[in-house]
């Protein structure tokens, strides 16, 4: 499936997840999302397995915070001054499921989509001007470059005999020196990249050619109609 149809699928799921406030409906939506992830293949299953721990680490405190903060009438458990109510339980479960749905739809989208295809989708299918769509690629390309430079700066500081900081003030000072070095290097790198792009005529024409093209196929169109249609049907009947 092309990135645009999948994105529309994600948006439809998001709309549904944001519409309902009952734990049962949210549970069903989450179940459908997990099922989609499992159907997608081994890679997605592996990634889903990997993010589950993170999800629980994030979801469990969120669930309990909602459970304790949300007011309700039907008390199911009382521990001293703390009332746990049925309404709070339902709402906490619903909101936690909603968060899981929002997170997992993004994870599945990312697991099944090449970031370069997202950039191509922006320019070729959504008609975003390529100068800005290219900035997305640029950001993604900057990350490993800066990580590498950060390591170089750290090694350089060690070679110059900078000892590991002790105490809060030394740590702040060390962090300041470190971040200034990263900033200066980033700006220099930024100027070099911009000059190189200008020299190669980046942005000189309103359109450009691509090695790879993303086409909106009949299958994509059918999927888009199916996603939007089923969302409207659910919104109307449930």
């Amino acid at each position: 499936m092309d990135p645009l149809s999948k994105l529309i699928g994600v948006i439809c799921m998001t709309v549904l997840a944001l519409t309902y406030q009952s734990a049962l409906v949210q549970g069903v939506i989450l179940g459908i999302v997990i099922l989609c992830g499992l159907i997608y293949g081994k890679r997605t299953v592996r990634i889903l397995g990997r993010v589950t721990r993170y999800l629980l680490l994030f979801g469990i405190p969120f669930f309990f915070v909602q459970l304790l903060w949300v007011p309700g009438d039907t008390t199911i458990l009382q521990l001293g001054p703390v009332h746990l109510t049925l309404e709070a339980l339902d709402y906490a479960a619903a909101i936690t499921c909603r968060l899981f749905t929002l997170f997992l739809t993004s994870v599945i989208y990312l697991a099944t989509t090449d970031p370069r295809d997202v950039v191509l989708m922006l320019t070729q299918q959504l008609r975003v001007p390529y100068r800005f769509a290219y900035a997305v690629s640029l950001s993604l390309r900057f990350l490993p470059i800066l990580t590498e430079e950060t390591e170089i700066i750290r090694s350089t500081h060690q070679l110059r005999g900078m000892r590991p900081p002790k105490g809060v003030s030394e740590r702040i000072q060390a962090w300041k020196i470190f971040s200034i070095a990263i900033f200066v290097n980033s700006v220099r790198r930024m100027q070099m990249i911009a000059s190189a792009m200008d020299a190669k005529g980046f942005g000189a024409y309103s359109s450009r050619t691509y090695m790879k093209t993303i086409k909106t196929t009949w299958f994509s169109l059918i999927m888009i109609v199916a996603f939007i249609g089923s969302t409207f049907i659910v919104l109307y009947y449930v």
């Binding site: 100068r131 290219y134 640029l138 950001s139 792009m197 942005g203």
Partner: peptide
């Protein structure tokens, strides 16, 4: 129009926006 709005930004400015966006993602 769209073209003049895009041309308002230099390549360096677009690169700066990209770097800040990346920095935000890390943050």
């Amino acid at each position: 129009n769209e073209r003049s709005a895009i041309q308002r930004f230099t390549t360096l400015e677009i690169v700066l926006m990209a770097v800040l966006a990346m920095a935000n993602a890390v943050l």
